[in-house]
Design a protein around this nucleic acid. Sequence first.
DNA 1: CCGCCGCGTTATCCCGGGTTAAGAAACGCT
DNA 2: AGCGTTTCTTAACCCGGGATAACGCGGCGG
Lengths: 195, 195
Amino acid sequence: MDLYAQLLRLGPLSKATYGALVRISEERVLAKQAFWSEPGAPVTHFAIVLEGLVRHFYVDAKGRESVKAFRARGEFSAPYAELIQRKPSRTFIQALEPTRLLTFDVVKFEALAEDSLELQRLARRFVELHFVAKEQREYEFLQLTAEQRYRQFCAERPEHLSHIPQHQVASYIGITPVALSRIRARVSGRRTPVG
Amino acid sequence: MDLYAQLLRLGPLSKATYGALVRISEERVLAKQAFWSEPGAPVTHFAIVLEGLVRHFYVDAKGRESVKAFRARGEFSAPYAELIQRKPSRTFIQALEPTRLLTFDVVKFEALAEDSLELQRLARRFVELHFVAKEQREYEFLQLTAEQRYRQFCAERPEHLSHIPQHQVASYIGITPVALSRIRARVSGRRTPVG
DNA sequence: CCGCCGCGTTATCCCGGGTTAAGAAACGCT
DNA sequence: AGCGTTTCTTAACCCGGGATAACGCGGCGG
């Protein structure tokens, strides 16, 4: 996982600034099932997944989970909306596999970025892409059926299908495990359907 | 509508830079029902609503509309995701009332912002808040019923209720006009319910 | 003044998905 | 290996909301 190359795709970044970033980073290891964010906790760090897989989810008053995202190697992991709002976390982040994170202290990062044109540009580009992803998700909820959302998920993240329990996939696409099971039965029953 | 004060809420902004922004802006008037973005068109401008009301929506292959947002005085209006991706618009933006926009040429804005720390910071903060709003919407689709989403809409944007045709509200919360009508009948039938 | 059209409501019918429950298969732990 | 737990499936039942259609109302243009 070449972090430098990855950041460069967002915009120009000098080796010096990159070095400063690396210096404020810390590796953190999560056992399978371990949490690194829980509701109520202040958001002090964000992270890049170096290895493994995490899920981001809410739990409502009645104890129902809603999975917001799965994040694997090279992807961003944090209670991002809360970080932006400087509010305590409202989301759980849990490792689905043994995971290594590269974490960054938010305060240190902002101190670095404060007067850095290239880091502000990078950070801006970074949120922009996350905004686009959220809008894509809005689109899927507005215009696709549960079955279409499932097929989309399978198409886009095939590598996850084998690592994520099905009820969590169901939660991600906004239905119950039972409903997903029915959809799967339906889909596999149809031999090479039109879609 | 004090644009300067509004921008200041996002972060520091010198009068000089603000002046430069104003110089690249252009007012644009939309008649009721007029469009200022349509699918296929390149995204050359973004805008702030000075007066009036617009709606942002997609239309799918079968001609079904999905309303993404309503934007009134002081709010941002543009096919933002497409602008970020530098792709042609996929969304319609239509005036629901006679509307005045303050438009900004994207290329001119980026030229101004390119080397401006304060504009990069502002732009970053700006997307961040839009990201938070999208995540809120994701939350509503994941965890609220249609009725709860309707009540939420009523609570948050009461001023819009009288100006927006009901079928567009229905589309915004992700249901059909008929379903919204039923929900309204249900809701008004219950005298001061639990809440 | 009349006819049209867009909008909201209501009714009917149907389907997708929620809920609950029970059973089967896979996994982990001791 | 034995046991419990988690995961997935299937079935029965219910309900919210989609599709369609009929009706009423209000606005608007002729």
